[in-house]
Amino acid sequence: MELTRIHPLVYLIYYFIMIVFAFIIRDPYFLLSFLILILVLISLQGISSELKNIMKLFLPLSILIIILNPLLNKQGVHKIYLFKNFFITYEAFAFGVLMSLALLIVILIFSSYNRSVTYQDMLYIFSKRLPVISMVIVMALRFVPLINSRTIEIQKLNKLKSNGVEINLENSNDDNNLEEFDSNISNIESSSNSKFLAKLNSSKKFHKIREESKVIGKIMAVTVSWSLEESMFTAKSMKARGYNAYNRTSYLSYDYSLADIFFLLLIIFTVSIVTAGFMQGYGIINIYPSFDFSFSDLPLNIYYFAFIIFLLPLIYLEIKERLLWH
């Protein structure tokens, strides 16, 4: 989509500032509106199905934070006694809740980021400054599925072998290595406390684990040596075709458009207002020593509205795209 194409570097800056804001902001009103707008953005981007997985990760973590923080942190004025001498503070509890809210926001921002900026865009940004490293990353990304399929192939072969199918291999270095592997284990056994190990050896479970680890080790070793050999052929081939003779060009190309400039100006304008608000204490609430917050004082000031405007452009772009494609 040409109309809503934004330069990846602009995206990177925008998301980075959003994350820094999520780290700093502790005002419940700011945080709640932040959360709502991010949820709107995510549902517009069509990754609300991912939300279930995110919640699976997030809920236990947030419960841990909310429970652990009051137990460890005894600052604050308002004490709540649970037992005779055991108390938690209202401030520490509120802090835990706000902290886990911020955590949720950051996780959501990252999932939205992964949607907006693909890894190819990221590599485009890298490739100007670090051409060789981005080449390594591209190659590694290509090798991962290849090596994965090789591992599966070796696993299948190993299953056949262990089921009694005979396969004639030209060189059987593997068996030598396996013997060495066995002697390695027995070396360790003899060098360390033998009573404990004798007990372990007698148990069936340990025997099973040992056999399994032997198989995993073997599969790993075969995969590694195979992939390393093959990769060296790749390298020779690349050399023969003249890699490094010229500078490489990128598969993607981006130019700064008028939309990018507007976007950047909006970011600069709103961020400077919000930062000025931070200086005066808007958005950052002092929780310790005393957390005096009531939901009745609405944050109807320019800093809050600047913050909301800062969060809107991506939602605007998504809605515009919807309308255009309708």
Partner: peptide, 14 residues
């Protein structure tokens, strides 16, 4: 050299 680049890429992938 190319060999070093490919080696690092393949080890990273492994």
């Amino acid at each position: 050299p190319v060999e070093s680049i490919v080696l690092i890429a393949v080890l990273t992938a492994i």
